[in-house]
């Protein structure tokens, strides 16, 4: 049995080309708002005032799937479906 890494997982999709060092997204779960991404966007959008609230586009931009490398692994690994 091959090593259960992202590259061989049915939930993972390479962004460019599957490889140990290549990046891809994990679609095991729906996308979620990631705080760090949102912070970066808010920073770039200048949402520094207390009365500034994130709009739909800001939230959309920060809603992402996890990005991992092909050689990563986790407990949600599942076999590829032919």
């Amino acid at each position: 049995m091959s090593t259960p890494t992202c590259m061989s997982c049915r939930h993972w999709q390479a962004i460019v080309e599957p490889s140990e060092d290549g990046k891809g997204e994990c679609f095991r779960h729906p996308p979620r708002i990631v705080g760090a991404v949102f912070s970066r966007i808010a920073l770039l959008e200048g949402l520094s005032d207390a009365d500034s609230s994130p709009d739909f586009m800001d939230r959309a931009r920060a809603t992402v799937w996890p990005v991992t490398f092909g050689g990563n692994r986790c407990g949600e690994w599942d076999t590829l479906v032919a």
């Binding site: 991404v37 739909f56 586009m57 920060a62 992402v64 799937w65 990005v67």
Partner: peptide, 21 residues
């Protein structure tokens, strides 16, 4: 803001993805 019909909506997801990458 708050315009789901915005045609650039899918592109917005790409921005977050790029940050994640």
């Amino acid at each position: 803001p708050d315009d789901p019909a915005d045609p650039s909506y899918p592109e917005a997801y790409g921005a977050g993805k790029r940050i994640m990458v």
